[in-house]
Simulated assay, not measured.
Amino acid sequence: MPEGASITLEGVGLTLGGQEIVAGVELDIASGEFVCLLGPSGCGKSTLLNAIAGFQPVTGSIRVGGRPVTGPGIDRGVVFQSSEALFPWLTVRENVEYGPRLRGVPARARAEAAAHHLALVGLSHAADKFPEELSGGMRQRAQIARVLVNEPSVVLMDEPFGALDAQTREVLQRELDRIWRATRCTIVFVTHDIWEAILLADRVVTMTAGPRAGIKTVERIALPHPRDTADPATLALYRTLRDDIGAEVSRTLRAQGLVQEAPETATAA
């Protein structure tokens, strides 16, 4: 697995349907870093992730490993929220081998690579099953293996555990932390879940409400792994991030006329 690549966003803006979704985004992500993007719904987190993947044209510039992003590339792997991204007519092993086969990797080499990555995500026992035979959590593991087998230097994850039950989500969060430590690729992870961001990330980047969303805060999480949600330092960070996001949500609701400003309280003379 190659070392993770740095990511640099300079003055990044993106317009969809005539509306500017994100504007003036400046962000540096170090090689091998795990960064979570956190923010209110509709603030452009997934849009920004798609831009790094090369799926969306932008103003400004995005560089990965010092090279400009001009479109999708094998150096950037994307794990989607839906496990439907797996091909249902292929076994788990065949799904994982799909990318190397397209690249012309010899049969023996791609079989060895698939076996290694299935073991990495704990799915060796399910290699010959079809996606419909797997639980949601197992399908997401298979999707992660299918991305990692291509040895990307950057892995982009768009709420990959959002559709899972709480127990499965917790297990996969621990598994992802283990996999990241084993591969040391750079990960950019979109989530709505503050606790998920705290448990996983080196840094949490919060975004302002859209339209024209940008970076609001960047919090470094200098806490050892595994992280304890009952730790006072963790709880303090949770409250800080909750307040940051809550302020943006309130601003959006006020702009939509759904929440009124609190009336000023008169003080007695």
Score class of each variant (00 low, 15 high):
residue 11 G to S: 12
residue 172 L to S: 01
residue 152 P to L: 00
residue 3 E to N: 15
residue 250 S to V: 13
residue 188 V to M: 03
residue 51 A to F: 03
residue 143 Q to S: 15
residue 213 A to C: 10
residue 153 S to E: 03
residue 89 W to T: 10
residue 203 R to H: 05
residue 61 S to M: 12
residue 219 E to C: 09
residue 164 L to S: 08
residue 243 D to Y: 01
residue 180 W to C: 06
residue 180 W to R: 03
residue 216 K to W: 06
residue 39 G to H: 01
residue 264 E to P: 12
residue 238 Y to H: 15
residue 87 F to G: 08
residue 30 A to T: 10
residue 182 A to S: 13
residue 146 R to I: 00
residue 88 P to Y: 02
residue 195 W to V: 09
residue 128 D to V: 04
residue 148 L to M: 12
residue 124 S to N: 13
residue 148 L to I: 08
residue 153 S to C: 13
residue 16 L to R: 11
residue 6 S to Y: 08
residue 262 A to R: 15
residue 31 S to E: 03
residue 85 A to K: 02
residue 256 Q to H: 09
residue 177 D to M: 14
residue 8 T to M: 14
residue 244 D to L: 02
residue 7 I to S: 09
residue 110 R to Y: 11
residue 96 V to L: 11
residue 111 A to C: 12
residue 193 D to C: 03
residue 185 C to R: 12
residue 98 Y to Q: 09
residue 194 I to R: 00
residue 251 R to S: 06
residue 245 I to Y: 04
residue 27 L to E: 07
residue 156 L to P: 09
residue 73 G to C: 01
residue 99 G to K: 01
residue 211 P to W: 04
residue 249 V to I: 15
residue 169 R to W: 04
residue 50 N to A: 09
residue 61 S to E: 15
residue 173 Q to R: 12
residue 69 V to Y: 09
residue 111 A to Q: 13
residue 52 I to D: 05
residue 14 L to V: 07
residue 71 G to S: 09
residue 56 Q to R: 14
residue 160 P to A: 00
residue 268 A to T: 14
residue 211 P to F: 07
residue 65 G to T: 07
residue 115 A to M: 12
residue 125 H to Q: 15
residue 108 R to H: 14
residue 10 E to V: 06
residue 67 R to C: 08
residue 119 A to K: 11
residue 9 L to G: 02
residue 35 V to I: 09
residue 84 E to A: 15
residue 169 R to F: 07
residue 15 T to N: 10
residue 268 A to Y: 07
residue 224 P to G: 14
residue 161 F to M: 02
residue 152 P to C: 05
residue 199 L to D: 03
residue 237 L to P: 06
residue 243 D to V: 11
residue 18 G to P: 08
residue 49 L to F: 01
residue 203 R to V: 05
residue 128 D to Q: 12
residue 67 R to V: 12
residue 59 T to S: 07
residue 234 T to M: 11
residue 193 D to G: 02
residue 52 I to F: 03
residue 166 A to L: 13
residue 262 A to E: 15
residue 236 A to T: 13
residue 11 G to Y: 06
residue 169 R to H: 00
residue 54 G to Q: 12
residue 188 V to D: 05
residue 109 A to K: 15
residue 62 I to C: 01
residue 206 T to N: 00
residue 40 P to G: 01
residue 116 H to D: 15
residue 150 N to C: 07
residue 261 E to T: 13
residue 55 F to I: 07
residue 265 T to K: 13
residue 131 P to I: 03
residue 87 F to E: 10
residue 237 L to Q: 00
residue 257 G to N: 08
residue 121 V to Y: 05
residue 155 V to G: 13
residue 115 A to F: 03
residue 7 I to A: 08
residue 122 G to T: 04
residue 93 R to F: 14
residue 170 E to W: 10
residue 32 G to C: 02
residue 240 T to I: 07
residue 171 V to A: 14
residue 260 Q to D: 15
residue 138 M to N: 01
residue 3 E to Y: 11
residue 162 G to I: 07
residue 49 L to M: 01
residue 217 T to N: 07
residue 112 E to T: 12
residue 53 A to L: 05
residue 125 H to T: 09
residue 229 T to A: 15
residue 108 R to F: 09
residue 82 S to P: 08
residue 61 S to I: 06
residue 135 S to L: 11
residue 40 P to M: 04
residue 9 L to A: 02
residue 187 I to F: 10
residue 183 T to C: 08
residue 196 E to Y: 02
residue 172 L to Q: 06
residue 266 A to W: 12
residue 51 A to E: 03
residue 256 Q to T: 05
residue 104 G to Q: 13
